[in-house]
Design a binder for these strands. Structure first.
Length: 494
RNA sequence: GCAGCCGUAGCUCAGUUGGUUAGAGCACCAGAUUGUGGAUCUGGGGGUCCCCCGUUCGAGCCGGGGCGGCUGUACCA
């Protein structure tokens, strides 16, 4: 078989492998988030990766493009199934299915992989992890306020310092009021409303001028590509932009500005009142410096019906080329009162928050949070195979170490001693166990401290000296093996 | 999807106006050293020069088409 016939070994576009260091660090971060959610009284729940397509979203994939946006396939009874693209829609299905058995309000959290069939980019994958918390069955904005405060606590728990993040809150009802005022309130303008929404969502990236173009005729980007706009009149554009710029020095001031912008719209005023209530609740618990009302937050999703929130990191770091990197949003959420109701005859209010696990993870690495950059765990103690006919004896040493609770393994390859040393080095072994015929005759084992040895290597220039010195190596009686290994481990991992 | 840039070893890249057997550094493997990681030295494995068609005596290089990657933009329920 020629090489050309071989299958190329590569992960599919937008999918990533993870090694032991990243897995361990992510687990620590997830544990911290879980603790925070648990502390707030949320309970765990897990749903499947696959859902009936119609339970996930509002349309069935059509025959021509069944995988637009989501990964979909047909069951043997021809029903369409899809990989979940977020954790909110599956939760709505779960709550609707088990409605009678669940305590209401139902507070739950869950972490898991979600899948999107979209173009991947740096920091954007087709499989990624989210960590959500939701309160279902509580119409009060106290539920929204609580989730915002929990988001703040959670970020601090994983190592983001106070002042390095902000939880921004807005309300869809206020935006609806603005849209009503410029004549986009009707059912027939739903598409145009969504275009406006998405244009505002790009404020942080494109700035007010870019958004102005998107709200009007359209915008041409630097590659010369043209994006069609929402087609609003200039005074309507001014009104929308005024809304996004209504943020004042304090929450009270911002809400006052918003009341002016939506004056006359009942729905808009209701939204402003809800924001005032949230601001009061947040201030009552002393979170007013971390949870702020910010009209520029809209979120691109259609299903939000009330308060929406976004957790944004405000610090900057430099990448390898010295360019500033902003992490921006690491999580978001909002109230989705219509989602569970799709499955039931009665409306069920709900609100929730979702953390983008990978994005938060890269941010934590950038700020060197101890949660992700804690000490590397040591590799296993490796028992070297010096004489092939003594494998049973070597295996017994491994077994002794394991029963003493020491992570250990027998070298299972076929190479010589030098390669075995390299193997142990690559495995980050704290030490290796050596027993050749000399040691065996004396009833001893040789223990080499690889960490100490590496330090000693700096002072040694010639290879002959390196080999004869045998740094950080000592001999003990066989029955002292466990104690000696523990002593070496104690030197480095206390 | 649209637009721009780019495809040579596992990685980063050289490769002259088109010329014979396509190179370097790093990484990997082995030896120098019967049984010791690092450093040094020596050697070795590894390539359909993304694919196909065309031009040419001759293509890594020129032309056309395709595929793939990166960046921006759109979509992201």
């Amino acid at each position: 078989m020629s090489k050309a016939d071989k299958i190329k070994a590569r992960a599919p576009r937008g999918f990533a492998d993870r090694g032991p260091a990243e897995i361990a660090a992510t687990e620590r971060m997830l544990a911290a988030i879980r603790q925070s959610y648990e502390l707030y009284g949320f309970e765990a729940v897990e749903t499947s990766f696959v859902e009936y397509t119609d339970a996930l979203g509002k349309f069935l994939p059509d025959q021509d493009r069944p995988n637009e946006g989501v990964f979909s396939f047909q069951d043997d009874d021809e029903q369409w199934l899809s990989l979940r693209y977020d954790l909110t829609a599956p939760l709505a299905r779960y709550v609707a299915e088990h409605f009678d058995a669940l305590p209401k309000p139902y507070r739950s959290y869950r972490a898991g992989w979600v899948f999107r069939n979209e173009k991947p980019g740096p920091g954007r994958f087709r499989q990624f992890m989210q960590f959500d918390a939701d309160t279902v069955g509580a119409a009060s904005v106290a539920a929204d306020a609580e989730i915002c405060m929990m988001a703040a606590d959670t970020l601090e728990k994983v190592g983001i310092g106070r002042g390095d993040y902000v939880i921004k809150v807005n309300n869809r009802k206020v935006l609806d009021g603005v849209l009503e005022a410029i004549g986009l309130g009707g059912e027939t303008q739903a598409g145009q409303r969504l275009t406006v929404l998405r244009a505002i969502d790009k404020l942080d990236r494109l700035g007010p001028d870019g958004v102005r173009h998107l709200l009007g005729a359209g915008r041409k980007d630097e590659s010369g590509d043209f994006t069609k706009g929402a087609g609003l009149e200039p005074d309507a554009i001014a009104r929308v932009l005024a809304f996004t710029e209504a943020k004042g020095a304090t929450n009270a001031e911002t809400i006052e500005n918003l009341r002016t912008v939506v004056a006359g719209s009942a729905r808009g005023e209701e939204g402003a009142s809800e924001l005032a209530e949230i601001a009061a609740l947040v201030a009552g618990s002393g979170y007013e410096d971390r949870v702020t009302v910010d009209p520029s937050v809209v979120r691109g999703l259609e299903y939000y019906t009330g308060p929406v929130y976004e957790a944004e990191l405000t610090f900057q770091v430099q990448d390898e080329d010295g360019r500033p990197v902003r992490f921006g949003s690491v999580g978001g959420g909002g109230r989705y009162d219509g989602l569970v109701g799709r499955f039931r005859s009665e409306p069920v209010p709900a609100t929730g928050f979702s953390i983008g696990v990978s994005r938060l993870f890269s941010a934590l690495k950038a700020v060197k949070s101890p949660v992700v950059s804690g000490q590397e765990t040591p590799g296993p103690v490796v028992v070297l195979v010096m004489d092939r006919d003594q494998i049973a004896a070597y295996q017994r040493m491994v077994s002794t170490l394991r029963h003493a609770g020491v992570r250990a393994e027998l070298y299972l390859g076929s190479s010589g001693m030098k390669a075995q040393m390299k193997y142990a080095d690559k495995r980050q072994s704290p030490c290796v166990i050596i027993q050749g015929s000399n040691e065996r005759e004396r009833g001893e084992v040789e223990i080499k401290d690889l960490i100490e040895g590496a330090k000693a290597a700096d002072a040694i220039a010639s290879n002959a000296e390196w080999k004869s010195a045998r740094p950080a190596q000592f001999s003990v009686a066989e029955n002292q093996l466990v104690d000696a290994v523990r002593e070496v481990l104690g030197r480095h991992f206390g």
